[in-house]
Simulated assay, not measured.
Amino acid sequence: MADKIPQKCPECGGSFTAKKLTTTCPHCGTKTELGIDGNARYAYVAPKPNQGKTFTATDLLNEFSAKHVSGPGMPDLMGVNKILKTVSINDVCPESGMTPLHWAIVNRNRAVFSLCLARGADASKRGTGEYEIAPIELAHREGLTDFVDRLVSHGASADDDMLRPIKEQRQVAAAATRERAAVVKETIARLTKEGKRAWYQEQVKHFEEILGIKSSVARGRGIRAFEKVPVKSLAEKNLGMEEWLIKLHDLAFEGGATLFCEKGLTVSSKIRLLLAPTKSVLDVVAVSNLLSPDEPGCERVDIGRQLEKLYVELPYRILECGRDGVLGDIRAMPDDLEGLAKRLLDICPHYGQTLQAGNGKPWEKVDDVTAVKNDLTESRGFFLTWD
């Protein structure tokens, strides 16, 4: 890389030029990686002991909040693993008095909390000073019922006051699961019945001719499937894969059905297409395999209801719906991109972080709304994931 490239620091906003992939901001000293758009990103920086030659619990807590390409709140496993070779996951930080579990609870960081439990953190280990309490007591004080529940499952002792909210939360969750399961069951039964009607059978035959593939029943879902569709060879020469699917989607939609890809539209040479005898977004999401009906917290029926409301306000095409997520192509972009970005973040709260830190893309220091707005401007659509 011979030429110096103008960059802007993600930390202080200062401008500088550099020709190395990884460099240091001359204004604030932040380690950065060059960005092709002129905005430098945070670079991965291997952790070093804060004092002396040996890592301590302080270094581990610092690593949890370090600004890496994985993004804020997402610990970099390379750095964590390096520190954990000499530091115990149960060590107490001498400065704060917290164990890693205490830190995760105080910062409400679910990623670090899960990492600590996965690495064998003692669910009853007390800290020092103001944190000379068990993690479960701290989580209860902070009102983090889901944290308390998981700590109990990892052997922490809990009194009735701690267990009562867990019991109530489980009862509410069980009732919601039953309701969602009923919606899925009713939707499948209705689509199975609708799929026997002449109009839908004609649609199936029409697409069998277009694709040159015989359809089969998508077991237990009330819709038809076209297996191993060679999307790259079928797509017209002047159309990309998404544009080709949009054309077929619109053709199906005009006839009262929805044609969509189950997964891998942009990365697979052969895909599975599904044809549903409905134009309802909720129906499509409900019979997809986006998430299981009993998935806690974030479930496909609830997601489908939110996406249905969005469709009423802003029509879009569902091009992909399955385990990888929901890909939507917006028919006409609204003037209020910020409002749309906020709506998408309501549906998928980590969407902004996924856009910035996902797929190996270095982290950009912008707020979530800006990240989603930028992606909407570039892609004229959205791809929401809940994995």
Rank of each mutant, 00 (worst) to 15 (best):
R224S: 10
D250N: 12
G256P: 08
L138M: 09
N374H: 13
K232D: 10
L84R: 02
G381W: 06
V172G: 02
K342Q: 14
A182L: 07
L144C: 04
N62L: 12
A181C: 07
I188S: 09
S292H: 10
S157N: 06
K185I: 10
R150P: 04
S153D: 01
G297D: 08
L344M: 06
R41V: 05
P277M: 02
N39S: 15
D367W: 01
V285I: 15
D335L: 00
V69D: 14
V106E: 14
R224Y: 03
E202S: 15
A173M: 07
C348P: 00
H206I: 06
I246Q: 13
E378H: 13
V312M: 04
F16M: 13
R108I: 01
E208D: 12
A118R: 11
E194R: 15
R190N: 15
A235F: 13
E33K: 14
L248A: 08
L77D: 08
E11L: 03
M78S: 13
V92S: 08
F383P: 03
K361L: 14
L77H: 05
D302Q: 06
L273K: 12
L274T: 10
L345W: 12
D375K: 13
T385S: 09
N238E: 15
G71L: 06
R150A: 02
K309S: 09
S153C: 03
L310F: 03
L345R: 14
Q353A: 04
G352Y: 10
V366F: 09
D387P: 04
E132L: 05
H140Q: 11
K214W: 14
T177A: 13
D336I: 04
C116Y: 01
T370L: 09
G381Q: 11
N81E: 08
T258I: 11
W386K: 11
Q169T: 04
L340Y: 02
T187R: 06
E236F: 08
G143D: 10
R221W: 02
R141L: 09
P334D: 04
T99A: 02
K365W: 07
E308W: 04
S88I: 01
K342N: 15
C348G: 12
F207A: 10
